[in-house]
């Protein structure tokens, strides 16, 4: 991609030497990584390594012990509202109907409810939620809930999407469908994405670049490019390049534990 040829380009998000401890517990150690504009970057790591903690620092919910986070070259604290977050559990509010869940971010930003709805509505069919606007979230299937949670994230029109194990709770078949669907959506919208997963295949299938985290305290132990062409299709899973990267990642993860 052009961003790699031209490394002078300021990354959309850059994290430099980030450290995070909770009292005695050291969770993040000297973390450095970046994502360029329109790039799909995945963070792959074992459970409990500190991936979600990393996102909670990025969203500003947790103040880091030390380190810099730059968005388009300026410190995160100054820019504030550049990142849109999708939590590990979908965190859809059961007392809000689907459409009202989707407008939550806009409402918090101060957009009037009617206006927020106008902005969300055209995206509802794109995300396969047509006809379910007035349903409650607990009436949706697992896949639909994740699509709703993703739409709630996307509609905020922030520069970067932070997706924390979006398909972790789904059954294998639905998960594969959702991965293919997300890839297609990404082709269309070209968001800058930081995705967390512990699923190696998901990481390879979706990403331009993958960072592998160690066990806690998390550091970056490997950075791997995925030179597979876009759009990605399911049959690429059998591609030697695909399985080669998959094997490399597995090896790194297993050695680290």
């Amino acid at each position: 991609m052009s961003a790699e040829e031209n490394s002078i380009v300021t990354p959309r998000v850059a994290v430099n030497d980030l450290n995070q401890s909770f009292g005695e517990l050291e969770v993040l150690r000297g973390l450095s990584l970046h994502a360029n504009k329109g790039e799909f970057v995945t963070i792959l790591g074992p459970s409990g390594s500190g991936k979600s903690t990393f996102f909670s620092v990025l969203t500003g919910a947790t103040t880091p012990t030390s380190g810099d986070i730059l968005v388009d070259g300026s410190p995160l604290s100054a820019s504030g509202d550049h990142l849109a977050f999708m939590p590990q559990k979908d965190a859809l509010f059961p007392w809000r109907r689907v459409l009202d869940n989707l407008t939550l971010g806009l409402e918090v930003q101060g957009v009037k409810r009617a206006q927020a709805r106008e902005r969300v509505r055209p995206l509802v069919p794109v995300f396969g939620l047509e006809g379910f606007e007035d349903a409650y979230p607990f009436e949706l299937s697992g896949g639909m809930r994740q699509r709703a949670a993703l739409l709630r994230t996307v509609v905020q029109e922030r520069d970067v999407l932070l997706l924390d194990e979006p398909f972790g709770a789904l059954d294998a078949l639905t998960r594969t469908q959702m991965q293919a669907w997300l890839e297609k959506m990404w082709e269309e919208f070209r968001w800058t994405v930081l995705l967390i997963t512990h699923d190696v295949r998901e990481a390879v299938f979706l990403s331009d670049r993958i960072y592998v985290f160690s066990q806690r305290p998390a550091t970056v132990v490997a950075e791997i490019d995925v030179p597979l062409p876009r759009p990605r299709t399911i049959d690429m899973v059998a591609d030697p390049v695909f399985s080669g990267i998959e094997a490399t990642l597995l090896k790194i993860l297993l050695e680290g534990s």
Partner: peptide
């Protein structure tokens, strides 16, 4: 109130009053 939901609201730029009204109270 769900911790994830609170983190979500904070990431959207919500302050304490908003979190109370939109999450903790319901």
């Amino acid at each position: 109130a769900d911790r994830d939901a609170e983190t979500l609201l904070r990431s959207m730029g919500a302050g304490s009053a908003r979190i109370f009204r939109s999450l903790r109270f319901p």
